[in-house]
Design a protein around this nucleic acid. Structure first.
Lengths: 337, 337
DNA sequence: CTGTTAGCGCATTCAC
DNA sequence: GTGAATGCGCTAACAG
């Protein structure tokens, strides 16, 4: 039957004590070769492998890393997660995935994970801990890294979104655009305020730098959803004096803008320039000009940093800033007139 | 300090025994109201929550569901996973994610997961267990469900890929195409043989049904990667007598075909019709005609089935067949001449 | 070097 | 109803 074989069975079979078996399991050096072989033979014979759970209970380590992601349906989040998976798969840690879809959910999750010490390390994607969260963090003392958000007291992997927003807008300006619309994510999104704020700030800085006045009518906000962005873009494009270029907060939204243009019979880039942000895969297929932030790489870097922190317990919170890069494809060009 | 608060602390604080605390934790009915309140107060005061690990050890359940996915970078796999996440997030189970990138990896993983009983249930995506795996499955007796693959002895969620392949090809034929290329995944892919075989079979059936001879030159195979598919499509399209339509095994590959057409200055659908399979999100943006298989839904159904199996221990392996649907967009049309 | 023992935190009998 | 004792499988500290 499937009657679990325990360390005791192995010990008996090998004619040794459980302590010895435990030693060879954790390859302690203090075991005679002959004994080690006997034990290993017994392990083979019994087809034994130790229970990670019991090990955890006894040792206080779960050998698991928790990954908290918001809106797992979001393309850029998935891309970051892929980076995380790629490094964790090669580690000895299991990856426990938590999806956060709303704020209540979020709080409960964080509290449980932290209090119960369910994991040895925590990777938080695109979510900024509140100040009250921080107490729990400090209390739980679980090594953590935030990807795409930051907190002074926590390790984080970020990009300079102000700069990114500036560069994107600057690209449009360089092309000769003056009437530049901006489609944003909700800035009061309870999850991850800074990137949406920063990117918009970059946009503002760029236009103000060259003396383009800010036109509130050119600003729209909605969720990270191409449908909704499409709708917002149509609003912008049917204005009496519509923008000749639109900067979208994310590629998903830029895709919505592209659809709006198509629906309205506008050619891109002849009649309308569109620039996105992220460089998700679809951006390439659609030949969308965008600000690339190394999504996958942010996951890789975050996971590696976490692993480091878990080993050395680096005392100082690190903040790694990843570069951002303008990728010019075929969705931006000079305004037609 | 972060000194974990245990059930014992709660018991002491409430002036009761640990047994009683345990009872209210698992809301056993056999507890007096007043006592229950005392205990709950203590729990609140101490900010206590039980350790899932200890609970597991004592009860034999890990409260975790393992999800094994191959090539986590694959868009359709991600989509299925999203469906799984959406239902598991609402359950009391944690989701432990395992990524399989090669066959050795795969075997080790499966063995470990099964032998160690790390999880209470297992969801396997797009991977078919070998016969030798099956021994382990039966031995471990862990409730399992396979999504997008099947095995007579295991629960599974599948689509009829032969039918899907037929329908896709038939659509091209109905449009008037005769010279129909096919770009496949590797059929000797060690992971998931049947869909790639089945879909091609559907293609063959469809053309033979109407008397179109099979032309081996119109067949190419490569990985599920748009780059590679692009290359293969260029081979097809630069043939002396090139196909007027191409059926790609997956949308990702169809996207590669689209790129090849663009590189070659071919208009889609005027000069070339392209049909994909899956209906991933990008397919919509690109207005790609494709065979939709409800990726997300397959994850949802799989997770739900697993949950059911874990509760009732349905003895009979279920096989749920999901429908497939032709989605006509703008990448297919009549051949130009 | 190696056997024995005492927990890890909780669920579960078993008496009271 | 409720408290005390036992065990889940393993590690670690302690003798020998």
């Amino acid at each position: 039957m499937a009657t679990t074989v325990t360390i005791r069975d192995v010990a008996k079979r090998a004619g040794v004590g459980v302590g010895t078996v435990s030693r060879v399991l954790n390859d302690s050096d203090a075991v005679r070769e002959t004994t080690r072989h006997k034990v290993q033979a017994a392990i083979e014979a019994l087809n034994y492998s130790p229970s990670p759970v019991a090990r955890y209970l006894s040792r206080g380590k779960s050998m698991a890393i928790g990954v908290i992601v918001p809106f797992f349906t979001n393309a850029s989040v998935v891309k970051r997660l892929q980076g995380i998976v790629s490094v964790l798969a090669g580690s000895e840690y299991d990856l426990v995935l938590f999806d956060v879809e709303n704020t209540e959910n979020r709080d409960v999750l964080l509290t449980n994970i932290l209090r119960r010490k369910m994991v040895d390390g925590l990777l938080i994607v695109s979510l900024r801990p509140t100040d009250s969260d921080m107490e729990q963090f400090l209390e739980a003392a679980i090594p953590s890294v935030i990807v795409d958000a930051s907190h002074p007291q926590l390790n984080s992997i970020v990009v300079d979104n102000v700069q990114g927003g500036r560069t994107a807008t600057q690209h449009l300006i360089d092309l000769g655009h003056v009437k530049i619309g901006y489609i944003s994510d909700f800035p009061d999104n309870p999850f991850n305020l800074s990137p949406v704020h920063d990117r918009h700030l970059g946009y503002l800085q760029a236009i103000q730098e060259v003396g383009i006045p800010y036109r509130p009518t050119y600003y729209r906000e909605g969720s990270l959803d191409s449908q909704e962005a499409c709708y917002l873009a149509e609003e912008l494009l049917t204005l009496p004096d519509p923008p000749t270029a639109i900067f979208a907060y994310s590629d998903m939204q830029a895709i919505g803008v592209l659809e709006a243009a198509r629906d309205l019979g506008l050619r891109v880039p002849e009649d309308l320039s569109v620039i996105g942000y992220d460089d998700i895969e679809a951006a390439e297929y659609l030949r969308l000009t965008t600000m690339r932030q190394s999504l996958f790489d942010s996951g890789v870097k975050g996971a590696k940093l976490l692993l480091d922190v878990m080993e050395d317990l680096l005392p100082q919170p690190q903040e790694i800033i990843l570069p951002t890069e303008l990728v010019i494809r075929s969705s931006t060009a000079m305004p037609s007139q």
